[in-house]
């Protein structure tokens, strides 16, 4: 037997936290048992047989001939070819009611779904269901632009029909909106409830800062108060919702986190979590000791919130753009694979015809799908591979010889021990939230 290659160890007081990235599980070990696990494994079996058995059971200890890397390769291959799920992103509009200074999208004023593009999307989805009997889940994500500009009159009827079509076939469709929340009004809440909608809502920090970034262009009226009220309204009125609050931070916003937490102090922690994302244009010098960020994460957790930071949660591929069953449809019938670039002809990779057939640019698609994102010298030996799977296929298409620039470890603003301690605390909070009270 041997210790798993994917064990990471962090000292904590007189103990060690061990995190196995392949199986996404933590354990707390005494200093002595940590030493035996790392250096004298047979002695651990004698000195603490029950501990040894449990470590084997949870795969912190594996057979000598275990091929953990090979298992991960197979997992990736299975995931990107998974016939049970389809990831569909819709761009109902590339217009927006705000003008955040850091947004990379090219706005198309007045753009919106047409009756023809709506019917094309419905025809495509029906064909998916009927030609792929293994397909069980359709994950529909609304992006843009601001996807809710024409929600009641255009988007909701389309999504309600997708939901009905799925249910008639005993399949599942789920709906997720990436939105600034300005268009979520009391009269739309029952519609979102019928869709079992979940959301990502972006925040730019405390009220003054948020209102300097997210304001109505004509009146310069800030949107912070309305956004906070909407978060409460959604959690109180939607039975099954979940809201990922994407907190765009920079060095100025981090010290003011308590103000934002105070404004969300009564929100249902089961329905709201926080994701911290640096505004990339404010690029930190990537020193791995940002104490203000560490304090901000700790403060959210101290107040009972789930917190995510970095894109290192356990999954089976780097980005869904690598999945075979994935497409992005814009309001005008153009099709894309990557949602992290602007939706311009340069990045267009296909077309959805009026009768619902998707025609990819075969050359572009082949180049993208041939990329195995972790299969490079940088990632193959990385113990974080099960959490990361390497730079996304878009970055590798654009910069195939400079992958190190995109390594998440390089951009992490916490030390690895601090990051693992944060993840350990976060896992404890999640466990507590999952436990029925």
């Amino acid at each position: 037997m041997k210790a798993s290659y994917y064990n990471l160890y962090v000292p904590h007081k007189e103990h060690f936290i061990c995190y196995n990235t392949k199986n996404d599980i933590f354990c707390l070990l005494t200093d002595r048992n940590h030493d035996l696990l790392c250096n004298h494994l047979p002695q651990l079996a004698q000195a603490a047989p029950r501990v040894y058995e449990q470590l084997v059971e949870q795969r912190f200890i594996v057979d000598d001939d275990a091929d953990e890397y090979g298992e991960l390769c197979a997992e990736y291959d299975t995931a990107i070819h998974n016939p049970n799920v389809y990831y569909l992103t819709l761009l109902p509009s590339l217009d927006c009611n705000l003008r955040c200074w850091y947004c990379f999208e090219k706005h198309v004023k007045g753009s919106h779904l047409t009756p023809e593009s709506t019917q094309a999307i419905l025809a495509y989805v029906r064909r998916l269901w009927d030609e792929h009997p293994q397909l069980a889940h359709l994950n529909v994500e609304m992006f843009g632009g601001e996807p809710l500009l024409y929600f009641r009159e255009e988007l909701y009827p389309l999504l309600a029909q997708i939901k009905q079509d799925a249910e008639e076939r005993q399949r599942k469709a789920s709906f997720f909106f990436v939105t600034n929340a300005v268009c979520i009004t009391p009269d739309t809440l029952p519609l979102f409830d019928r869709l079992n909608a979940s959301f990502q809502i972006s925040i730019d920090g405390y009220k003054d800062r948020h209102d300097r970034v997210k304001f109505i262009p004509g009146t310069r009226e800030g949107t912070y108060d309305r956004m906070i009220e909407t978060v409460y309204s959604l959690t109180r009125n939607l039975k099954n919702t979940y809201i990922n609050l994407r907190l765009n931070y920079d060095d100025e916003t981090l010290p003011h986190m308590a103000d934002l937490i105070q404004d969300l102090i009564d929100v249902d922690r089961h329905k709201v979590g926080v994701h911290l994302e640096r505004v990339w244009q404010t690029g930190h010098s990537a020193k791995h000791d940002n104490q203000a960020l560490k304090a901000a994460i700790d403060l959210w957790m101290l107040n009972g919130f789930k917190v995510s930071y970095m894109n290192l949660g356990r999954r089976s591929f780097s980005c869904k753009a690598s999945a075979v069953n994935q497409a992005i449809f814009s309001y005008d019938g153009t099709a894309y694979k990557c949602s992290g670039r602007d939706f311009t002809p340069q990045h267009c990779e296909g077309t959805l015809t009026a009768d619902g057939f998707l025609h990819w640019d075969a050359g572009k698609l082949e180049r993208r799908m041939n990329i195995v994102t972790y299969d490079n010298d940088l990632c193959r030996s990385c113990k974080l591979m099960p959490l990361c799977w390497g730079p996304c296929c878009q970055k590798q298409l654009e910069s195939p010889s400079d992958l190190e620039r995109f390594c998440q470890k390089r951009h992490m603003e916490l030390s690895m021990p601090d990051y693992i301690c944060y993840q350990f605390n976060e896992a404890c909070i999640e466990t507590e939230l999952r436990t029925p009270s």
């Binding site: 949870q58 700790d298 404890c428």
Partner: peptide, 23 residues
Amino acid sequence: MKQVKTTGNLPMDGMILMFVTGG
């Protein structure tokens, strides 16, 4: 209205095999 907690223990502060599963 509740107030923001600014002091206190995070889960690991008061902790020995103990397992915690990730998400």
